[in-house]
Amino acid sequence: MARSKGDKIVADEATASDSQARASGEKALGLWGDTWRRLRRNKLAVVGMCIISVFLVVGMATEIANIAGVNLAPYDPNQVDYKLSPTGLGSPPSLTHPFGTDYIGRDIFSRCLVATRISLIVGVIAVAIAVTMGLALGPVSGFYGGAIDAAIMRLADVFFAYPYILFVLLIMTILGPGFVNVFLAIGILSWATYARLVRGQILSIKTMEYVEAARAQGASDLRIIFRHVLPNSMAPIYVSMAMGVGGAIVTEATLSYLGIGIQPPNASWGKMIADYVTYFQAGRWWMLTFPSILLVVTVFGFISFGNGLRDATDPKLKE
């Protein structure tokens, strides 16, 4: 019996939405079809999706160009040119330099573009590390229970006990600054969120009848976890991932702002903000304003999309 991914929904939810669909004469939608329909109606979530799409396209294009050794930006982001900063205070936005230049004549637009790539990689890889760890430990914990569960969950408690930003700082002090260390630190410290989420989901799902049915058919533990339990517990994980990418971008920016993240001469939104604060206070607004706007808009995209996705997958909010 071939079933599409969308069909695998929690039993009672399925009957509810099926009967609703029959009553209104609509074609029955799967869980994700329904989610998509509700997501589209949420304007903020749609705006968030557009922002994320632009961010992904720009970030991936710069990354591919970087691997291919091509410079996609109009200028070399680290090219110092004192002619473009005659007074040592940069030059304001112009047609050739849409975002202006900084105090040593580097093109702000090109630097922002390169920083997009940094944010994208940090956000995606950090969340990927955290989710992988969470998806490895959470199901084990929730499915087997007992001593393994207690050990994993107490470890998660310990990770939650630290105020997050301080824990990241502590790890970064030890690892030392740098691009790779930033996403390693953020990723390793965020696993507990996902492990707890998956575990909670699994605890509620493992008593469902279809899991019992699978077991009665002689399915192995691994098969039950990966074929039946995990696909049904993913909705809150996706929500957390969307928010998590936004959070990782903020954390990277914060670390870089504090001087222990991305190191010069590489550009990162947080690093640029830290570097240009003094010039901002001297009235040279463009250096700081553009990276700030990009950072805030990107994070807003992930948060509003995440919130929209949460509302769209929450069975309690169904009309």
Partner: peptide, 25 residues
């Protein structure tokens, strides 16, 4: 709700820098 979502995503240091500039300069 919209402004809450926008403000929620602003990192502390960005808001701090802009408020500082506004109120002190």
């Amino acid at each position: 709700t919209t402004s809450a979502l926008v403000i929620w995503g602003i990192p502390v240091f960005v808001l701090g820098v802009f408020l500082e500039q506004f109120f002190w300069v």
